[in-house]
Design a protein around this nucleic acid. Structure first.
Lengths: 245, 245
DNA sequence: TTTGCCATGTTATCAGACAAGATACATTTT
DNA sequence: AAAATGTATCTTGTCTGATAACATGGCAAA
């Protein structure tokens, strides 16, 4: 970046004051000059030190919050997050152009869901079972209405993740959903209504097997049926994806 | 959750208005209701639509900019970025202050690693096996040197994830590592050298069982030994964490 | 048609104010 | 003396109004 303060170049638009402050504070934090859990200067101090308005300070801090570098507590101050280097787990949508990449992500999803089903079979309570059952009914209703039931299907899997009592399972499933759901719409495109109905009936039969295992508090069966369901799902995805390609 | 929009509960105001607006706009964008390069409503419109001040609107947009979801052009407006990034999966380190939260994350790790070991037993090749074996040796060497072998242990688990041939497993393991490794250092603090050596020998015996199952191309055994290893690890973490607390 | 100007809309920044939560200290009570 | 309580003060959250910088489209002049 050719942006020296002394040379004036008519083309380079200077970064906004907010962006400058974000860059400055961000690098200070990453360099460790502000240590984790340490309190940042107050807004007033930052205003004075950088000669900017409070708007700029607040927007800069808002950006750093969005980056996960700082957390703020009303009335107390802004603090450096405990793990400022913690990079998020991210799957770029562009990487999922190839069928192989989607299959890889589906494999990761299988890992998490198999375990989630097993945990759900152990940790299940009445409320969780009721929710899972409701999701099954909703899928039935959607299929009867001629819908592809993609959303209801997703909710079913989420309800199992929720039944584990471990919030990270549902969060991870939701994360994967944002990347996978768009690809799954292929199944809605099955033209032949007869074939499509058979497809959905088969899927729903597998769902019921998982549900039964969880109701029976049988973690091994829950894992096994979930594995079978998702492996069959991978095969189905592969068949449809190749067909439509 | 008992948080209905109509009833206002004096206790629950968990999210700031800014955070709410960020979530709302972010999900709208990610859901595709605002398409890439499309212009967002003006600040005035957003103020009116959500009945908030301009401060809130601007901080929310600043957050979305930091996330890479929108770009702004002065005098022109705010626009959805060309390739809106998928919402990443992130574990805030601050959430891991409680032992229960760490155990939850360890459970998620177990899910992924169990499946990774099973896959490694299927997809394994000579190179992968050699790497896993080398990691075992490095742990041995580290333990003999009196080290806690945390890094070598981590590498061993990564080598299994790598042997799956599915890059997402290693990526996810590395992601979890950045969150969990800092907590795992407790084990380095075991004072009694005798106890510590027993601890590490036990861990290494479990590693060898996993290795043997992968060498034998036995996915069921690989999953079972990995599950046993990580469940034991959860118990060990619990014991140490309670002790040092 | 092309060029230049300008009115209008929009974001960027500033300034001041009040509300709400947090913290430390003095006060009161036990 | 110790603990509970009240209060002053600091800090972030939100609101309001104003000015500057930039972008865009229309209009008039060449």
């Amino acid at each position: 970046m050719a942006r020296s303060p002394t040379a004036f170049s008519p083309l380079t638009v200077p970064l906004s004051r907010t962006a400058q402050l974000v860059e400055h504070l961000g690098s200070e934090i990453r360099a460790g000059r502000y240590k984790p859990t340490e309190r940042l200067p107050t807004e007033q101090e930052l205003m004075a030190r950088f000669d900017v308005s409070r708007t700029v300070v607040r927007e800069a801090v808002a950006s750093l919050k969005a980056e996960g570098l700082v957390v703020t507590r009303q009335g107390s101050g802004a603090f450096v997050a405990q793990n400022p280097t913690g990079k998020p787990f991210r799957i770029v949508s562009d990487d999922l152009k190839s069928i192989a990449e989607v299959l890889n992500v589906l494999q990761l999803r299988l890992a998490v869901e198999v375990e989630a089903a097993g945990l759900a079979a152990i940790e299940r309570d009445d409320h969780g079972l009721e929710e899972i059952g409701l999701c099954l009914d909703r899928i039935d209703a959607a299929v009867r209405a001629g819908d592809a039931a993609i959303e209801a299907d997703y909710e079913f899997h989420l309800s199992i993740a929720r039944a584990t009592g471990n919030p990270y399972f549902e969060r991870f499933m939701r994360f994967l959903g944002t990347v996978l759901i768009p690809r799954q719409t292929v199944r809605a495109g099955i033209e032949n209504p007869r074939v499509r109905r058979d497809y959905l009936d088969q899927v729903q039969a597998e769902h019921r097997a998982i549900h039964a295992a969880i109701v029976a508090s049988d973690p091994d069966a829950a894992r096994q049926t979930t594995r079978a369901h998702l492996e069959a799902g991978r095969v189905r995805y592969l068949a449809i994806a190749r067909e439509t390609a």
